[in-house]
Write a protein that binds this DNA or RNA. Structure first.
Lengths: 161, 161
DNA sequence: GGGCGTTCCTTGAAGGTTCAACAAAAGAGC
DNA sequence: GCTCTTTTGTTGAACCTTCAAGGAACGCCC
């Protein structure tokens, strides 16, 4: 049973600041990408992740895990991106249940076209405003937080929950 | 015009870690509150914000600004929360356009009932895992990021954008 | 091979968010 | 007072996410 302790003043202030930062940032990036690329940030992240793999392709489940979203969400997203022609599905030769999301040439070009604007937005919001030291701190802190949270669809093992 | 520089390896790693942390955390808290309180995290934040004001009431626009969301989103949210009986609208005496969101007793009790679970989740995900120093760092960094981003509905002054 | 639990991915409905458009009241300038 | 602009809050449609349910293929065990 975890402790019932309340948050201290400092913790509350930090928590509020963190919420504000993440809320504003997500909103800002979604808006920027919606304007320039016609898709929300998460969809862009999917294309971006695919673009960095050997053959620009990945199994659905692995793509979901790497981007930290549910398979259901990914299914809907891929359906939409496929409709845009930026992605296509291929069936997996070694596992007939499997689907492979493949970045199309059009998708890659869309990424190339919109990446500079997106990177600029990220730089302007974060890296241009933090010291090198703070960037390292943010990385460390983020990794600690992420490590403490498991992916929503991790196997339902008894020693979790 | 901002620089066209790409992200360095370290910056990319930090950015990815940050995205993973915020994605997982948001998801985790939404799920926890949806289970225990029947509402998403943002709705909880609205009730929570109201509960900390003198008379547990606030003008719609100010509430939107303090929680960093749009007025439209707030309108929909308040409509839903009002349906739950946790909130009620009152018209503003000094400005006939104005609406005031007021936390009801039922809403306050709901907050009291669900706050411990939510606070526990936040502690477990963040404050139990970071050093005091890191909490301070996270606060500083969050404030810097938030300060660089303006509220989506700030006046459309020419020197912005 | 047959049965049984598991994994993979999809689906549709319910609910949340965004965006553009709108009405009403307030404020500013004359 | 009168007009023009701004602010306030809402609305509905389109889009996105979640959740529960389900079909198909896999893997294991006998």
């Amino acid at each position: 049973m975890s402790s019932m302790k309340w948050l201290t003043e400092d913790e509350q202030a930090t928590w509020r600041a963190f919420l504000h930062a993440t809320t504003l940032l997500e909103d800002h990036l979604d808006r920027q990408l919606q304007r320039d690329a016609g898709m929300p940030h998460m969809y862009y992240a999917l294309l971006s992740t695919l673009s960095e793999t050997p053959q620009r392709r990945m199994r659905m489940t692995e793509l979901a895990e790497q981007t930290k979203i549910t398979r259901s969400r990914l299914s809907h997203a891929v359906a939409r991106l496929e409709g845009n022609g930026w992605l296509r599905r291929e069936s997996c030769p070694s596992d007939r249940r499997g689907q492979i999301a493949v970045l199309t040439d059009a998708g890659y070009e869309e990424l190339v076209r919109t990446a500079p604007g997106h990177v600029s937005a990220v730089r302007a919001a974060i890296f241009d405003r933090l010291t090198q030291e703070q960037v390292e701190q943010l990385g460390d802190i983020s990794r600690i937080i992420a490590d403490g949270l498991h992916h929503p669809e991790g196997a339902d093992v008894p020693w979790r929950r």
